[in-house]
Design a binder for these strands. Structure first.
Length: 151
DNA sequence: GCCAACGTTGGC
DNA sequence: GCCAACGTTGGC
């Protein structure tokens, strides 16, 4: 089972949105970066994903979510009313993908970015590399364990 | 709010 | 196909 990390601004969609009600399913749409999209498309049902809170007061990994539906065409790309509308995309030739997530568990306490940066063995994780903007990235089993062992 | 880093766009 | 201009991301 592959493992991943996704970034989100908690004001947009954070761990508490997942924790709001048991079994809540949230579509992960609005990804508009090709590299991130390609990773989304590789996700499989049952994969585990770190949810990272970005651009906020408490930056870091807030919990673990799980893929409950693998990639399908992101409906927001076809909706002219949507902020994520893409006029160059069509149902016949969709350009963007979405997946569905549900909560696995919220961490007892958020693991802050500065702590993650200090962990040996995460040097190749895009998250901790300077200037990196990738919002969906793979996490190796080793990296996953290194992070989990700190919780 | 600032600004460095990055991805995308579009003129040539 | 190059690359300058632009818009966005995201930590600080």
């Amino acid at each position: 089972m592959a493992k991943w990390l996704v970034k989100s601004e908690p004001s947009e969609c954070g761990i508490d949105d997942f924790a709001e009600s048991p079994g809540k399913v949230i579509p992960w749409d609005g990804v508009r970066n090709y590299q991130a999209r390609n990773f989304l498309a590789q996700m499989r049902e049952g994969d585990d994903v770190f949810l990272y809170h970005s651009s906020c007061k408490h930056i870091g990994i807030a919990g673990i979510i799980r893929v409950v539906r693998s990639a399908y065409p992101d409906p927001t790309q076809f909706d002219p009313e949507s902020h994520y509308y893409d006029p160059k995309s069509s149902p016949e030739n969709p350009r963007w993908q979405a997946v569905d997530f549900t909560l696995e568990r919220k961490l007892n306490q958020l693991m802050p970015l500065d702590q993650i940066k200090q962990l040996p063995g995460l040097e190749s994780l895009p998250l901790v590399r300077r200037g990196n903007r990738l919002s969906v990235m793979p996490v190796s089993d080793d990296e996953w364990q290194i992070i989990l062992s700190q919780t």
